[in-house]
């Protein structure tokens, strides 16, 4: 691994997010390197999605700072963060329904990716191919089913040429074959040097990728480290209410 990957790509300190009286993120400290793939687990309502929303700038934090690639991005608008390489997929897909699948990804490449037209074409085609969606390129996004909408979330995120890719439950509802395909795709992205944060309830998929696991509960990070160890931590087992941790 090169020099750059030893530097943290993202560092979060003292991050807090409240919705009125509700504390959703409670003093989060977190840091990761560009060569890491971090899995996030935690019960419903733990604040996982909100954490990503604050990282990409969809929500402003109540307090705390976010540093990305050495730059303080805490007050940077979402569009500028994505142009710097932070991107997420939405847990509930948000396609541009009136546009084709290709156009969805092209917009991401031409804006977030800062690519000129021809490069953006190539970038979009290649992102679609990676996500197994090329054959749907000319389909209007609003006609897609849920699984393809999720694939489109990933393809669109890749269109922006990210450095840090934040995935929010893209593995749900897949067959074994599809899940394997997804894992293959994410591995390929790691090879290309993209840092990955992946929220997933389907832990066995996550563990094929993550070399570090975080468990969130009630807005806090209650465990962080090697996946095997984290999954065995009593607090984690309890947070899942003794539920089967596959």
């Amino acid at each position: 691994m090169n020099e750059a990957s030893n530097q943290p790509i993202v560092t979060v300190s003292g991050l807090e997010k409240r919705f009125r009286a509700l504390v959703v993120l409670d003093q989060i400290d977190f840091s990761m390197r560009a060569d890491e793939a971090v899995g996030i687990v935690g019960p419903n309502g733990a604040g996982k999605t909100t954490f990503l929303s604050v990282l990409v700038g969809a929500h402003a934090p109540t307090s705390g700072t976010i540093t990305f690639a050495g730059e303080d991005v805490t007050h940077l608008p979402a569009a500028e963060r994505s142009r710097r390489g932070i991107i997420r997929t939405h847990q509930i897909p948000r396609p541009f329904g009136g546009m084709t699948v290709f156009e969805n990804v092209f917009v991401a490449a031409a804006n977030g990716g800062n690519f000129a037209r021809e490069e953006a074409y190539e970038r979009a085609s290649e992102s679609l191919r990676l996500c197994g969606m090329f054959h749907l390129a000319n389909r209007r996004a609003e006609t897609l089913g849920l699984l393809d909408r999720k694939r489109l979330e990933l393809a669109r995120a890749l269109g922006t040429n990210p450095k840090l890719l934040l995935l929010d439950e893209i593995g749900g509802g897949l067959t074994d074959g599809e899940a394997n395909e997804l894992v293959g795709t994410i591995r390929e992205l790691r090879h290309r040097g993209i840092a990955i944060v992946w929220i997933e309830h389907i832990v066995h998929i996550l563990l094929q990728i993550a070399d570090r696991l975080i468990c969130m509960d009630a807005g806090r990070i209650i465990a962080d480290g090697d996946p095997e160890t984290v999954m065995k931590t009593p607090a984690v087992v309890e947070a899942y209410l003794g539920g089967s941790v596959e």
Binding site: V56, A79, F96, V107, A110
Partner: peptide, 19 residues
């Protein structure tokens, strides 16, 4: 294409870098 993305979902448009 940027304006159509905004029309279809403003927050998602911003998230992929549309000003």
């Amino acid at each position: 294409s940027a304006i159509q993305a905004i029309r279809d979902n403003e927050e998602a448009a911003a998230s992929v870098g549309v000003r």
